[in-house]
Amino acid sequence: MASSSSSSSCSSSSEKKITLKSSDGEALNVEKNVALEFEPAKGFLEDNSEEADDEAIVVPLPNVSAAVLSELIPYVKQRLELSAKPVQKKLIKAFDDQFTRHLSDDKLGELMLAANYLGVNYLLDVLCDVTADRIKNKSVEYVREFLGIQNDFTPEEEAELRAQCPWAFEGVDQD
């Protein structure tokens, strides 16, 4: 009996709501099981576990904006539902593809920072794959602009490195 009561309390806890407070001060209500996917929120909830009423807890997430959180929350929620079922990896991949396909480059970067900060590693993994895919066949100049990286080589140093591996500069996509 003890095990059945603990499992029922577990399933009801997933319906409890927690409030997340974004960097821009917005409060977002999420299911507790979704909030627990975010490492800082999980830590915060564990530290405040003596609080009887979860509804009263407000978890501050000072590094993530409301705009980014409101993209992340539905993703994590659906991803949790998918991985709870005995689904094929193919389905999860299709879901991830659908989520990332239309992301702008800026949004991709923001989500990467957020997923890294929140410790949502399965999303971070997918986002890194997508970013790698977007720069894979591009030129050096394109990549510098894409990621906002300052070239600190002198033209001579750059030419020398280029000459060491000319094959790496063949067949590059148009920017």
Binding site: L124, C128, D129, T131, A132, I135, K136, N137, S139, V140, V143, R144, I149, Q150, N151, D152, F153, E158, L161, R162, C165, W167, A168, F169, V172
Partner: peptide, 19 residues
């Protein structure tokens, strides 16, 4: 994390992005 997902040819080219 991103660079290590690229093919050898791409990372070899991207060595000249910056020091």
């Amino acid at each position: 994390e991103i660079l290590c997902r690229l093919p050898v040819k791409s990372v070899t080219r991207f060595k000249i992005v910056s020091k």
